[in-house]
Amino acid sequence: MQASRARLFKEYKEVQREKVADPDIQLVCDDSNIFKWTALIKGPSETPFEGGVFQLAFAVPEQYPLQPPQVRFLTKIFHPNVHFKTGEICLDILKNAWSPAWTLQSVCRAIIALMAHPEPDSPLNCDSGNLLRSGDLRGYYSMARMYTKLAAMPKKG
């Protein structure tokens, strides 16, 4: 508990320092609870998520950093490795490939990379995965694009 708190505090300071270096990620700690974080990440360019801003919720366990943070999308996203309803993310580093070498910041980077490089063979969203697996890139792109516009972009006017 004490160890995780100390580590999170170091990450907090690191995040303040890296703000400028990584403008695609805005990681904020809850005012009253250092185990709760949210992040705003920018959809990577040349993907259907471009121009969107996606919100992630982090719940950090007491055994952190020996155990991974729990992360999910709060913003609706159409992606093979994100549960359409719960926002849960299928990413190895959040499960068995986790190690303390990762940080909340680098997890955000990994999630941005996952947005650009979906893994349709381990889908949490089968509809999305099936479009990619059947080679219907256009179908995948237009669905993903539509949800980006609906959920991740500020409404105009």
């Binding site: 309803k85 499960k95 609906l150």
Partner: peptide
């Protein structure tokens, strides 16, 4: 258009049969 398609997607992604509901809630966590 978006809303219309949205409706379709909703019904396609959600698993309608009730016995699967528990599994849908049984997440990685």
């Amino acid at each position: 258009d978006g809303v219309q398609v949205d409706g379709e997607v909703e019904s396609a992604t959600s698993v309608p049969t009730p016995e699967f509901d528990e599994w849908a809630n049984f997440g990685d966590q």
